[in-house]
Design a protein around this nucleic acid. Sequence first.
DNA 1: TTAGGTGCAAAACCTTTGCACACAG
DNA 2: CTGTGTGCAAAGGTTTTGCACCTAA
Lengths: 143, 143
Amino acid sequence: MPTDHATKTPTIEPIRRDTRQRRAVRDALAHAKAFVSAQELHAALRETGDRIGLATVYRALADLAGDAEADVIQSDDGETRYRACDTDAHHHHVICRECGLTVEVQADTVERWLASVAAEHGFVEAEHTVNIFGMCAECARAR
Amino acid sequence: MPTDHATKTPTIEPIRRDTRQRRAVRDALAHAKAFVSAQELHAALRETGDRIGLATVYRALADLAGDAEADVIQSDDGETRYRACDTDAHHHHVICRECGLTVEVQADTVERWLASVAAEHGFVEAEHTVNIFGMCAECARAR
DNA sequence: TTAGGTGCAAAACCTTTGCACACAG
DNA sequence: CTGTGTGCAAAGGTTTTGCACCTAA
């Protein structure tokens, strides 16, 4: 039995309205193959002619993350970046430092190791973050 | 001069002066058992009567991190937190969500998995970050 | 002597919030 | 209708920077 993260859904799902802005953010995120920041997403939407406020983008992304519809990562330069989850299952990321290309990966072996390490040290309710950064094949070739 | 990242130690170690402030930051960090932010460290130093500027703390911590003398982590609330490395060897962390207690851990098995996953997807020059968050035995007991 | 370090305040950034108004349900 | 969502600008928080002065080497 793997560690339960949000095992029992609080049943009380927040009611979200289906607005044009919300759809735009969701779509833009779905089409991004890399982790993007709120500012970047906002700029991208504006370029396509979408009229949407920056605060709205922040709020929409925060909600998506809260609803587990998007993964979140803190970049080194202090930005919060989001990405639409490819899968609902627990997973990790391999991210290209150059272009941002991100691949989702999983491995029970590692999951078990992570859990056992936490237990060995007496830690309970353990969660974890695993991220692999490198240069993708294409960017490496372009060098 | 090859501009490679930090692959081969650049021999050209920056010359750092041994100042009172630098020592204070280094010491304070060494005595902290958890990851601390620049602001926290600054506040702590001031409380002990140390006269030191916030900007100086930021600069000192950035240098320590650059010299691989401190580990860095981005907290969820967007703060950059530092911790003196217990070991020079590559390692990961098990962090208590309550008190911040941090334990360094290593495991070749996982290292190999991380490397192979990156390779499988065609990524080169792969690095990674692994962090386990949980509640340490003591904090769990205190519940 | 002289280059790196320090302090302070200003500036730069990212993100959140208050509030009036718009609009989905 | 009602209450969530939106926009804008202001505010909040962290980190960086410009610049004159200090000081280790």
